[in-house]
């Protein structure tokens, strides 16, 4: 048994300290979501004296937070799916230089990587309203797909370039078309890269606030971010339901994360390193 040095002990203490820093806000939110208004304040760790389920009833019935969670999932999942299919097709063409202007196309797509999409807020809002696209699932999904396109393109192109061309060539010998190659060979082989793009798009859409806040006006279409934001002016003095709404909005995505923990972390890591 090795003797622990002072430095090691400090190191461990720090590691646990940061654990507490990251967990505490969630702890406080969850505990508060079961308390009545007066019990929430002037305490740091106290548990509720009586569990106030009414907060959750109010979060579901009055705030309609579950609907918002569902909407967030629909937008995120939809955008994710569109991105994956379109990007993989486009990325394969560029990665294999199937067109003469592949290089130019790559530059064109990567331009978007360096531009914050919300800078285009006003033209997008105007365009969406003129076309009657507000408060509709499909256009929002396409918008989110377009906004997240450059990043996924960058990741997936990089990944496909790492896939040996021998595979394609073997498939061509077999008489496979380009489309066939993409969907039968590239999809399975490049799936780790594609998954990375998908997960990054998913989280980006799930967290998005600006476009959702300006384009979604119908209560039934609002996402988690928009709904939580709206709560501020609405019922700022009934805190319990507010905490309950936050908890309900965090739970599903946290569950997804814990289920696919390795993949989510790996995906984000790959994306982070390349970005």
């Amino acid at each position: 048994m090795k003797k622990l040095k002072a430095g090691d002990i400090l190191y461990r203490i720090l590691a646990v300290f940061f654990f507490l820093i990251f967990v505490y806000p969630i702890y406080f939110t969850v505990v508060s979501s079961f308390k009545n208004n007066t019990e929430i304040w002037n305490t740091m760790f106290a548990l509720p004296s009586r569990i106030e389920w009414g907060n959750y009833v109010s979060a579901v019935v009055d705030v309609g937070i579950l609907r918002a969670v569902l909407n967030s999932f629909i937008f995120s999942f939809g955008a994710c799916l569109v991105v994956v299919v379109l990007v993989t097709m486009a990325a394969y063409v560029v990665a294999r230089k199937l067109l003469r202007f592949s290089g130019a196309l790559r530059m064109y797509y990567l331009l978007g990587l360096m531009i914050p999409p919300y800078a285009m807020l006003i033209p997008v809002v105007t365009m969406f309203t003129e076309l009657g696209f507000r408060d509709k699932y499909w256009p929002m999904i396409l918008l989110y797909a377009a906004v997240n396109f450059p990043m996924s393109f960058y990741l997936i192109t990089g990944y496909i370039e790492g896939v040996s061309k021998e595979l394609d060539e073997a498939a061509i010998m077999d008489g496979c078309s380009t489309t066939g190659i993409i969907f039968r060979i590239i999809f399975p082989v490049a799936s780790p890269g594609i998954f990375t793009g998908a997960i990054i798009s998913f989280l980006a859409v799930y967290n998005e606030l600006i476009f959702a806040n300006t384009l979604l006006t119908n209560q039934a279409m609002k996402t988690i971010s928009v709904r939580l934001l709206g709560l501020q002016g609405e019922r700022f003095t009934s805190y319990g339901p507010m905490f309950a709404s936050i908890v309900l909005s965090i739970l599903p995505i946290l569950a997804v994360y814990l289920l696919f923990q390795e993949k989510v972390e790996g995906g984000i890591a790959a994306g982070a390193v390349k970005g």
Binding site: A171, C176, T179, G180, F183, R184
Partner: peptide, 19 residues
């Protein structure tokens, strides 16, 4: 993966329509 998907022997046109 290719063999599981039934391969591409059917020729370009067919496989691309399937895909």
């Amino acid at each position: 993966a290719v063999s599981l998907l039934g391969g591409c022997q059917g020729g370009g046109a067919q496989s691309s329509s399937q895909a």
